[in-house]
């Protein structure tokens, strides 16, 4: 058997094992320590599980796709300010419409509107970065930091001048966490993630080519501008979903994407994407379960993830710099 085929087999075997582990973790999460009223606990935990799976999926896929368009392994949408942009859009909407109007609107409609604005602005702001004009990674990181700080400071400014009542509504939406997921948004999130995935699946043959870099992709006949735009749309949708559900999570995507590249040893997206998604699901659901059941901490998961991910980001930067 040719080695490339056996490498694919090994990757598939690895994915099957990881998927089994993921299912096991989900089942544990649903059933561990359930006493008494199953009919109450199962839907409650189910919604939480669904939210975590959606967030894990969105963060993993958006990070891998982002690294593919930006052609490096250090950046992620959140490092480049995508979720800060989403938070800014939410703030601006509450600021201009007022909390009363915002709460009166169906949250699902509101979410869709925010998502549409997000798609528009992320294409507007980020597309030029990947059109071949900016080549240095340092410039990219710098632009990302500046965008992030700009969006956050502007949101911060608006939140200070906003009506205090409006601010309370806003705070509710901005500081979502793994424990305070809005169940109203689960359905539409599922729908949007499904739509984005379908879209990504349509362009999947060109994804591997895109990861070879702009020039090689053009040489191989990929319409680089168009595919870049489409990937940015997918990323914008996925970031909107994860940020709306649990708020900004900065380094998690980077962590799972790097793990996937390391452990799967196969650069093809059809292996890397599922691996990153499964790692993300296992660590979110597993992490939450351990913290809740073992340590009885309720809110710490976000902090733990950011801590580990942040350390990892620094290691990546140092290793890259040493080379």
């Amino acid at each position: 058997m040719p080695p490339s085929l056996s490498r694919n087999r090994a990757s598939i075997r690895f994915l099957v094992i990881t998927a089994t582990l993921c299912v096991a973790v989900c089942i544990f999460f649903m059933t561990i320590g359930v006493k008494g009223n199953w009919s109450f606990i199962l839907p409650f935990r189910g919604a939480k599980l669904l939210a975590m799976l959606l967030v894990a999926y969105s963060i993993a896929v958006s990070t891998v796709l982002f690294q593919t368009v930006s052609n490096n392994r250090i950046l992620s949408p959140s490092i480049m300010g995508f979720d800060a942009l989403y938070a800014l859009i939410q703030t601006c909407l509450v600021f201009t419409l007022g909390a009363q109007a915002v709460t009166a609107i169906d949250p699902r409609l509101m979410f869709a509107v925010e998502c549409a604005i997000m798609i528009f602005f992320s294409c507007l702001l980020y597309r030029w970065l990947f059109s071949g004009a900016v080549r240095s990674l340092h410039t990219l990181i710098l632009v990302g930091l500046i965008f992030g700080i700009l969006f956050r400071s502007f949101s911060g400014f608006l939140q200070r001048v906003i009506d205090p009542n409006d601010f309370i509504v806003l705070q509710d939406r901005l500081f979502a966490s793994f424990n305070s997921v809005d169940p109203n948004l689960l359905g539409i999130s599922l729908l949007m993630v499904g739509g984005a995935s379908f879209f990504a699946w349509r362009i999947s043959p060109s994804l591997d080519v895109m990861s070879l870099g702009r020039e090689t992709a053009i040489n191989l006949g990929v319409d680089h501008r168009r595919v870049t735009t489409m990937i940015l749309v997918v990323i914008a949708i996925l970031v909107s979903v994860s940020t709306a559900l649990v708020g900004p999570v900065t380094f998690f995507g980077l962590l799972v994407a790097s793990l996937a590249y390391q452990l799967i040893a196969n650069a093809k997206h059809r292996f890397v994407l599922p691996a990153a998604v499964l790692f993300a699901m296992i660590s979110l659901v597993g992490g939450q379960m351990i913290l809740e059941r073992l340590f009885a901490f309720d809110t710490a998961l976000g902090i733990v993830i950011e801590f580990v991910g942040g350390l990892f980001f620094i290691v990546l930067l140092i290793r890259k710099g040493a080379r």
């Binding site: 490339s4 690294q67 052609n71 490096n72 392994r73 043959p205 060109s206 591997d208 080519v209 990861s211 070879l212 870099g213 090689t216 191989l220 006949g221 990929v222 590249y261 040893a265 650069a267």
Partner: peptide, 20 residues
Amino acid sequence: TARLTVRDLVEFGRYPHSKG
């Protein structure tokens, strides 16, 4: 940036014809 084998790379040469 992607970590490819020689064969992986050469395979990409067929992309315009086979689309993957």
